[in-house]
Protein backbone atom coordinates (compact mmCIF):
# COMPACT_ATOMS: atom_id res chain seq x y z
CA UNK A 1 0.00 0.00 0.00
CA UNK A 2 2.80 2.39 0.91
CA UNK A 3 4.42 4.25 -1.96
CA UNK A 4 8.06 5.23 -2.11
CA UNK A 5 7.38 8.90 -1.42
CA UNK A 6 8.57 9.75 2.07
CA UNK A 7 6.26 12.33 3.69
CA UNK A 8 8.20 12.85 6.88
CA UNK A 9 11.46 11.51 8.20
CA UNK A 10 12.95 11.82 11.69
CA UNK A 11 16.64 11.08 12.13
CA UNK A 12 18.17 10.84 15.59
CA UNK A 13 15.54 13.14 17.04
CA UNK A 14 15.59 14.01 20.73
CA UNK A 15 13.39 16.45 22.67
CA UNK A 16 14.61 17.91 25.95
CA UNK A 17 12.47 20.02 28.26
CA UNK A 18 13.66 21.44 31.58
CA UNK A 19 16.73 19.22 31.65
CA UNK A 20 14.79 16.02 31.00
CA UNK A 21 14.76 14.03 27.79
CA UNK A 22 11.20 13.30 26.74
CA UNK A 23 12.40 11.19 23.83
CA UNK A 24 15.81 10.44 22.40
CA UNK A 25 17.30 8.83 19.35
CA UNK A 26 14.07 8.53 17.38
CA UNK A 27 14.37 7.32 13.78
CA UNK A 28 11.11 7.23 11.91
CA UNK A 29 10.00 7.26 8.29
CA UNK A 30 6.48 7.65 7.06
CA UNK A 31 5.55 7.16 3.40
CA UNK A 32 2.45 8.10 1.49
CA UNK A 33 -0.18 5.41 1.99
CA UNK A 34 1.60 3.94 5.01
CA UNK A 35 0.06 3.48 8.46
CA UNK A 36 2.51 3.75 11.35
CA UNK A 37 1.25 3.06 14.88
CA UNK A 38 3.14 4.43 17.88
CA UNK A 39 2.56 2.48 21.08
CA UNK A 40 4.07 2.73 24.54
CA UNK A 41 3.09 3.31 28.16
CA UNK A 42 1.89 6.70 29.44
CA UNK A 43 4.65 9.30 29.36
CA UNK A 44 6.72 7.31 26.88
CA UNK A 45 6.88 10.17 24.38
CA UNK A 46 4.34 9.06 21.79
CA UNK A 47 2.60 12.43 21.50
CA UNK A 48 5.94 14.27 21.69
CA UNK A 49 7.24 12.20 18.78
CA UNK A 50 4.14 12.82 16.69
CA UNK A 51 4.14 16.56 17.48
CA UNK A 52 7.81 16.78 16.53
CA UNK A 53 7.07 15.02 13.25
CA UNK A 54 4.50 17.65 12.24
CA UNK A 55 6.39 20.65 13.58
CA UNK A 56 4.38 21.58 16.67
CA UNK A 57 7.52 20.86 18.72
CA UNK A 58 11.04 21.71 17.61
CA UNK A 59 13.53 18.89 18.23
CA UNK A 60 16.45 19.64 20.57
CA UNK A 61 18.72 17.38 18.54
CA UNK A 62 18.35 15.48 15.30
CA UNK A 63 16.69 16.28 12.02
CA UNK A 64 13.07 16.37 10.88
CA UNK A 65 12.47 16.52 7.13
CA UNK A 66 8.96 17.04 5.81
CA UNK A 67 8.14 16.93 2.14
CA UNK A 68 7.57 20.40 0.70
CA UNK A 69 3.98 21.66 1.04
CA UNK A 70 2.97 18.77 3.28
CA UNK A 71 -0.67 19.18 4.25
CA UNK A 72 -1.35 17.85 7.74
CA UNK A 73 -4.67 16.82 9.25
CA UNK A 74 -4.40 16.59 13.02
CA UNK A 75 -6.73 14.94 15.53
CA UNK A 76 -5.38 15.90 18.96
CA UNK A 77 -5.67 13.70 22.01
CA UNK A 78 -7.63 16.30 23.91
CA UNK A 79 -9.63 19.20 22.63
CA UNK A 80 -11.28 21.26 25.32
CA UNK A 81 -13.75 23.58 23.63
CA UNK A 82 -15.01 26.06 26.15
CA UNK A 83 -18.76 26.14 26.58
CA UNK A 84 -18.74 29.89 26.01
CA UNK A 85 -17.93 29.39 22.33
CA UNK A 86 -20.98 28.55 20.23
CA UNK A 87 -19.57 25.99 17.80
CA UNK A 88 -21.62 23.60 15.70
CA UNK A 89 -20.13 20.52 14.06
CA UNK A 90 -20.62 22.27 10.73
CA UNK A 91 -18.65 25.33 11.86
CA UNK A 92 -15.92 23.10 13.34
CA UNK A 93 -15.23 21.81 9.82
CA UNK A 94 -13.95 25.20 8.65
CA UNK A 95 -11.91 25.99 11.75
CA UNK A 96 -8.50 26.07 10.04
CA UNK A 97 -9.39 26.33 6.35
CA UNK A 98 -12.26 27.41 4.15
CA UNK A 99 -14.51 24.76 2.59
CA UNK A 100 -17.71 24.69 0.56
CA UNK A 101 -21.01 23.37 1.86
CA UNK A 102 -20.70 20.31 -0.41
CA UNK A 103 -17.24 19.52 0.98
CA UNK A 104 -18.57 19.81 4.53
CA UNK A 105 -21.49 17.52 3.80
CA UNK A 106 -19.22 14.97 2.10
CA UNK A 107 -16.72 14.98 4.98
CA UNK A 108 -19.42 14.49 7.60
CA UNK A 109 -21.06 11.74 5.52
CA UNK A 110 -17.74 9.93 5.07
CA UNK A 111 -17.47 9.41 8.84
CA UNK A 112 -21.19 8.84 9.31
CA UNK A 113 -22.19 11.93 11.29
CA UNK A 114 -24.22 13.88 8.70
CA UNK A 115 -27.14 14.02 11.11
CA UNK A 116 -25.02 15.97 13.62
CA UNK A 117 -24.12 18.91 11.35
CA UNK A 118 -26.11 21.40 13.43
CA UNK A 119 -25.29 19.90 16.83
CA UNK A 120 -23.12 21.85 19.26
CA UNK A 121 -19.75 20.12 19.68
CA UNK A 122 -19.95 20.40 23.46
CA UNK A 123 -23.01 18.13 23.46
CA UNK A 124 -21.54 15.25 21.44
CA UNK A 125 -20.68 11.85 22.94
CA UNK A 126 -17.07 10.65 22.94
CA UNK A 127 -17.47 8.60 19.76
CA UNK A 128 -19.42 11.30 17.93
CA UNK A 129 -16.84 13.92 18.86
CA UNK A 130 -13.98 11.69 17.62
CA UNK A 131 -15.75 11.24 14.29
CA UNK A 132 -16.41 14.96 14.00
CA UNK A 133 -12.73 15.65 14.67
CA UNK A 134 -11.77 13.04 12.09
CA UNK A 135 -14.09 14.67 9.53
CA UNK A 136 -12.51 18.04 10.33
CA UNK A 137 -9.04 16.66 9.65
CA UNK A 138 -10.18 14.84 6.50
CA UNK A 139 -11.88 17.79 4.87
CA UNK A 140 -8.43 19.32 4.37
CA UNK A 141 -7.49 16.38 2.10
CA UNK A 142 -4.34 15.86 4.13
CA UNK A 143 -1.20 14.16 2.83
CA UNK A 144 -0.54 13.09 6.40
CA UNK A 145 -3.19 12.32 8.97
CA UNK A 146 -2.04 12.32 12.60
CA UNK A 147 -4.39 10.68 15.10
CA UNK A 148 -3.50 10.92 18.79
CA UNK A 149 -5.37 8.12 20.57
CA UNK A 150 -8.46 8.24 18.36
CA UNK A 151 -10.20 5.31 20.08
CA UNK A 152 -9.91 6.84 23.51
CA UNK A 153 -13.37 7.34 25.00
CA UNK A 154 -14.94 5.17 22.33
CA UNK A 155 -16.72 1.96 23.33
CA UNK A 156 -15.54 -1.51 22.38
CA UNK A 157 -17.67 -1.87 19.26
CA UNK A 158 -16.82 1.68 18.25
CA UNK A 159 -13.09 0.97 18.44
CA UNK A 160 -13.15 -1.66 15.67
CA UNK A 161 -15.54 0.50 13.62
CA UNK A 162 -13.25 3.51 13.94
CA UNK A 163 -10.21 1.44 12.87
CA UNK A 164 -12.18 0.18 9.86
CA UNK A 165 -13.00 3.77 9.02
CA UNK A 166 -9.36 4.87 9.33
CA UNK A 167 -8.22 2.03 7.05
CA UNK A 168 -10.85 2.95 4.47
CA UNK A 169 -9.65 6.57 4.58
CA UNK A 170 -6.13 5.41 3.78
CA UNK A 171 -7.39 3.11 1.02
CA UNK A 172 -9.53 5.85 -0.50
CA UNK A 173 -7.25 8.88 -0.20
CA UNK A 174 -3.83 7.26 -0.12
CA UNK A 175 -2.67 9.57 2.69
CA UNK A 176 -0.04 8.55 5.22
CA UNK A 177 -1.33 7.93 8.74
CA UNK A 178 0.48 8.31 12.04
CA UNK A 179 -1.60 6.71 14.75
CA UNK A 180 -0.98 6.82 18.50
CA UNK A 181 -2.34 4.16 20.81
CA UNK A 182 -1.71 3.39 24.45
CA UNK A 183 -2.87 -0.20 24.02
CA UNK A 184 0.39 -2.12 24.01
CA UNK A 185 -0.81 -5.38 22.54
CA UNK A 186 -3.80 -4.72 20.36
CA UNK A 187 -3.19 -2.52 17.35
CA UNK A 188 -5.06 -1.65 14.22
CA UNK A 189 -4.74 -4.62 11.87
CA UNK A 190 -4.05 -2.46 8.81
CA UNK A 191 -0.94 -1.00 10.47
CA UNK A 192 2.18 -1.36 8.31
CA UNK A 193 4.69 -0.58 11.03
CA UNK A 194 4.36 -0.64 14.81
CA UNK A 195 6.87 1.38 16.80
CA UNK A 196 7.03 0.76 20.54
CA UNK A 197 8.34 3.78 22.45
CA UNK A 198 9.53 4.25 25.97
CA UNK A 199 11.61 7.40 25.84
CA UNK A 200 13.36 5.82 22.86
CA UNK A 201 12.43 3.22 20.25
CA UNK A 202 12.13 -0.06 22.17
CA UNK A 203 11.24 -2.18 19.18
CA UNK A 204 9.50 -2.00 15.85
CA UNK A 205 7.76 -4.52 13.64
CA UNK A 206 4.53 -5.54 11.99
CA UNK A 207 1.36 -6.67 13.74
CA UNK A 208 0.46 -10.34 13.67
CA UNK A 209 -2.70 -10.51 11.67
CA UNK A 210 -3.73 -13.62 13.51
CA UNK A 211 -7.34 -13.22 14.50
CA UNK A 212 -7.34 -17.02 14.58
CA UNK A 213 -4.43 -17.44 17.00
CA UNK A 214 -5.27 -18.90 20.36
CA UNK A 215 -3.59 -16.13 22.32
CA UNK A 216 -5.72 -13.54 20.56
CA UNK A 217 -8.95 -15.27 21.54
CA UNK A 218 -7.77 -15.77 25.09
CA UNK A 219 -7.04 -12.10 25.46
CA UNK A 220 -9.85 -10.52 23.56
CA UNK A 221 -12.66 -13.03 22.98
CA UNK A 222 -15.56 -10.59 22.67
CA UNK A 223 -13.44 -7.78 21.32
CA UNK A 224 -12.31 -9.84 18.36
CA UNK A 225 -12.61 -8.12 15.01
CA UNK A 226 -10.68 -8.24 11.76
CA UNK A 227 -9.85 -4.58 12.38
CA UNK A 228 -7.72 -5.49 15.42
CA UNK A 229 -4.44 -7.36 15.52
CA UNK A 230 -1.86 -8.38 18.09
CA UNK A 231 1.58 -6.91 18.35
CA UNK A 232 4.30 -9.14 19.77
CA UNK A 233 7.12 -7.15 21.35
CA UNK A 234 10.70 -8.27 20.91
CA UNK A 235 12.69 -6.22 23.35
CA UNK A 236 16.34 -6.77 24.08
CA UNK A 237 16.43 -4.58 27.19
CA UNK A 238 14.48 -3.65 30.28
CA UNK A 239 13.77 -0.29 31.89
CA UNK A 240 14.76 0.47 35.46
CA UNK A 241 12.58 2.74 37.59
CA UNK A 242 15.12 5.51 37.08
CA UNK A 243 14.78 5.28 33.33
CA UNK A 244 18.02 3.36 32.87
CA UNK A 245 18.19 0.74 30.14
CA UNK A 246 19.62 -2.71 30.81
CA UNK A 247 20.36 -5.22 28.05
CA UNK A 248 18.71 -8.60 28.34
CA UNK A 249 20.57 -11.83 27.61
CA UNK A 250 19.91 -13.14 24.09
CA UNK A 251 17.74 -15.98 25.27
CA UNK A 252 15.19 -13.62 26.73
CA UNK A 253 15.02 -11.31 23.77
CA UNK A 254 11.81 -12.74 22.38
CA UNK A 255 9.91 -12.63 25.63
CA UNK A 256 7.27 -9.93 26.01
CA UNK A 257 9.07 -7.13 27.76
CA UNK A 258 8.33 -5.09 30.84
CA UNK A 259 5.56 -3.51 28.81
CA UNK A 260 3.38 -6.39 29.95
CA UNK A 261 3.37 -5.23 33.53
CA UNK A 262 2.52 -1.71 32.46
CA UNK A 263 -0.16 -3.04 30.17
CA UNK A 264 -1.92 -4.96 32.89
CA UNK A 265 -1.72 -2.07 35.25
CA UNK A 266 -3.34 0.14 32.67
CA UNK A 267 -6.18 -2.25 32.09
CA UNK A 268 -6.94 -2.44 35.75
CA UNK A 269 -6.94 1.32 35.82
CA UNK A 270 -9.35 1.45 32.90
CA UNK A 271 -11.78 -0.95 34.53
CA UNK A 272 -11.63 0.77 37.87
CA UNK A 273 -12.25 4.27 36.61
CA UNK A 274 -14.40 3.65 33.60
CA UNK A 275 -11.79 5.26 31.38
CA UNK A 276 -14.06 4.93 28.36
CA UNK A 277 -16.31 7.61 29.73
CA UNK A 278 -13.41 9.81 30.72
CA UNK A 279 -12.74 11.30 27.32
CA UNK A 280 -11.67 14.81 28.12
CA UNK A 281 -13.68 17.14 25.96
CA UNK A 282 -13.91 19.82 28.54
CA UNK A 283 -17.36 21.05 29.43
CA UNK A 284 -15.83 23.40 31.93
Amino acid sequence: MASSEILVELTGVGVERDGRWLVRGIDLQLRRGEIVTLIGPNGSGKSTTAKTAIGIIEPSVGRVVRTAGLRVGYVPQKLAIDWTMPLSVERLMTLTSRHSRQEIEAALASVGVSHLAQAEVQRLSGGEFQRALLARALIRRPDLLVLDEPVQGVDVAGEAALYDLIRSIRDRTGCGILLISHDLHVVMAATDTVICLNGHVCCRGTPESVASSERYWQLFGHRSSPALALYRHHHDHTHGDDGSVTALPDAASDAPCGCDAVHHREHEHRDAHGDHEERARGHA
Binding site: K51, V72, Y74, P76, I81, M85, L95, T96, S97, R140
Partner: peptide, 14 residues
Protein backbone atom coordinates in the same frame (compact mmCIF):
# COMPACT_ATOMS: atom_id res chain seq x y z
CA UNK B 1 -10.28 31.51 16.40
CA UNK B 2 -8.36 28.31 15.63
CA UNK B 3 -5.64 29.23 18.14
CA UNK B 4 -8.35 29.95 20.72
CA UNK B 5 -9.86 26.49 20.23
CA UNK B 6 -6.49 24.74 20.32
CA UNK B 7 -3.05 26.27 19.79
CA UNK B 8 -1.40 22.97 18.83
CA UNK B 9 -4.10 22.14 16.31
CA UNK B 10 -3.62 25.56 14.74
CA UNK B 11 0.15 25.07 14.67
CA UNK B 12 -0.12 21.57 13.16
CA UNK B 13 -2.27 22.86 10.33
CA UNK B 14 -0.04 25.78 9.42
Amino acid sequence: LAATVDAELAAAEG
